[in-house]
Amino acid sequence: MLMSGLVPALVGAMLAIGSAQAQPSSFETFTVPTGSVPHDVAPAPDGTVWYTAQAKGAVGRLDPRGGKTNWVPLGEGSAPHGVIIGPDRAAWVTDGGQNALVRFDPRTERFEVLTLSRPHANVRQMMGRPGEVWLSESGTDHLLRYRPRTADARSN
């Protein structure tokens, strides 16, 4: 019993001492629209930052120079998770709600939904490199490579 009360007291004391010695925060905070529930972020070469707005079924774009944000709704049932800026400078979004990989081209302001072939893929994370985008289907134990130029998708 004594230990159960002692440990939280010691941890609290250490946190208080650490807080008193901590340097001022260097984080800048940017407010996004209420209810966005931002999940992943991806800085773009043009200085903007893309983020997934999970609760809104959208991908958002923040311009940190002025704090302006805008959204692109991804479609009925969308539940976006991950976002990267691909080698083509488009925003690529994993969307578990649509069981899809979604590509949004900021130049044309059009998006393309690439539905995955396996149901309940639970697609979440992805990475890009020149000529390809990689993602994981945690619901099916697969990795997927998508080559935008050839429209060739292969699972391994």
Rank of each mutant, 00 (worst) to 15 (best):
M1W: 05
M3G: 05
S4A: 13
L6D: 06
L6M: 11
V7S: 05
V11M: 12
V11W: 09
V11A: 15
G12A: 15
A16Q: 13
A20E: 14
A20P: 03
Q23N: 14
P24I: 00
S25D: 13
S26L: 11
G35W: 12
P38D: 01
D40S: 06
A42S: 10
P43H: 05
A44R: 02
G47W: 09
T52E: 05
K56T: 07
A58W: 07
A58H: 09
A58I: 01
V59M: 07
G60Y: 04
R61A: 01
L62F: 12
D63G: 05
G66Q: 10
G67V: 03
K68I: 00
T69F: 01
T69G: 01
V72K: 14
L74T: 01
G75D: 04
H81I: 03
H81W: 10
H81M: 05
V83C: 13
I84C: 13
I85C: 12
I85E: 15
I85N: 13
G86T: 01
D88T: 07
A90K: 06
W92M: 00
V93R: 06
G96S: 14
G97P: 11
N99K: 11
V102Q: 12
V102T: 15
D105R: 03
P106H: 09
P106G: 08
T108S: 15
E109K: 15
E109D: 14
R110M: 13
F111S: 14
V113W: 05
L114N: 09
L114M: 11
L114E: 06
T115F: 05
T115Q: 09
P119M: 07
P119V: 01
N122D: 15
M126H: 12
G128S: 15
R129S: 13
G131Y: 11
L143H: 11
R145I: 14
Y146Q: 02
P148N: 09
T150D: 11
T150R: 10
A153E: 13
R154C: 03
